[in-house]
């Protein structure tokens, strides 16, 4: 027994259709207007950024050429010798790369520890009082808005060339970025354990130690690991301003047009970043798995 759907009487359906058409038309108008504004902005931006299609087309051949210049001549028969010659400075490059990793590591740990302590002052739920909350929030904002390379530029002047200003710049930027994320995590915790501790007379420090930290520690670690990935990339260019790491070799080779060496160093950087990304992802997945089982 098939039942056909009864169509609406004509006057009712006509009304509904007109309302539908009007809604769709309004939406289309909005979209149209929005697209015009965006396109206009794109043209303005292209003008402001001196985008030049002609220059792009006439010079684009240099881009693949650049990568072609970076690859050395490697013969099939002399493969191992050629690769060995290409990576003539492997020991030196790996030393600089480990320096980069060390800069990223020390910067991340220092920044994460500082962010850990500041996050409670900046959070909405655990703040001590409103003026210290205001001050910490503005401080964290300042730390994460100024790009890390800018800090590095200024620190190079006051601390001298070398990895130390790089570490300090990364640490400060990390404090700002992680401090915000950490305080948001603290805001989203379950407040019942904290209230229980407060009711039984725990001090502010004890409330945080036994009520908050057990809830947030895994999230904190996960975000710190993500930040470490970002900082490895950041540390690889710290050398551009004289703040240590493999960046100083890279910019030297680029300026001297040692294309083949640039290629070799770039491959080292890319491989390291990939390995770090892969490793931290594995650790994070394991931590999430531990969280759900316990």
């Amino acid at each position: 027994m098939a039942t056909a759907i009864q169509p609406l009487p004509h006057d009712q359906s006509a009304h509904l259709q007109s309302v539908y058409a009007a809604t769709v038309a309004q939406k289309r108008r909005q979209l149209f207007l929005g697209s015009i504004i965006v396109v206009l902005l794109i043209f303005l931006a292209a003008f402001g950024a001196e985008v030049d299609p002609h220059k792009f087309v006439t010079n684009f051949w240099k881009f693949p050429r650049y990568f072609y210049d970076m690859t050395p001549h490697i013969g099939v028969t002399t493969f191992f010798d050629d690769v060995a010659e290409w990576y003539w400075g492997l020991g030196k490059w790996l030393r600089y790369m480990s320096e980069t990793l060390l800069i990223a590591y020390v910067g991340t740990v220092t920044g994460a520890v500082a962010a850990f302590f500041l996050a409670f002052f900046a959070s909405g739920s655990m703040a001590v009082n409103s003026w210290s909350q205001f001050l910490t929030r503005r401080l964290l904002e300042f730390f994460r808005t100024v790009p890390d390379v800018t800090f590095a530029l200024i620190f190079v002047v006051s601390f001298g060339l070398g990895p130390f200003p790089g570490v300090l710049a990364l640490a400060i930027h990390t404090t700002g970025a992680l401090g915000k994320l950490f305080s948001e995590i603290v805001d989203n915790i379950d407040m019942k354990p904290v209230e229980g501790l407060r009711a039984s007379g725990a001090t502010w420090f004890q409330q945080i130690r036994f009520g908050v930290v057990p809830q947030v520690l895994s999230n904190f670690t996960s975000y710190s690991l993500l930040r470490f990935e970002v900082n490895v990339r950041g540390a690889s260019v710290m050398g551009f301003v004289g703040a240590g790491g493999i960046g100083q070799l890279l910019i030297e080779y680029v300026r001297k047009f040692y294309y083949v060496d640039v290629g070799a160093v770039l491959i080292i950087i890319i491989l390291t970043v990939m390995v770090i990304d892969y490793g931290t992802e594995k650790i994070r997945h394991r931590m999430i798995a531990m969280d759900t089982t316990s």
């Binding site: 950024a49 001196e50 030049d52 220059k55 792009f56 684009f60 240099k62 680029v254």
Partner: peptide, 12 residues
Amino acid sequence: LIWVGVVGLGPF
């Protein structure tokens, strides 16, 4: 750094 080598100095 690479693109500066390709299209020259400047915002482009």
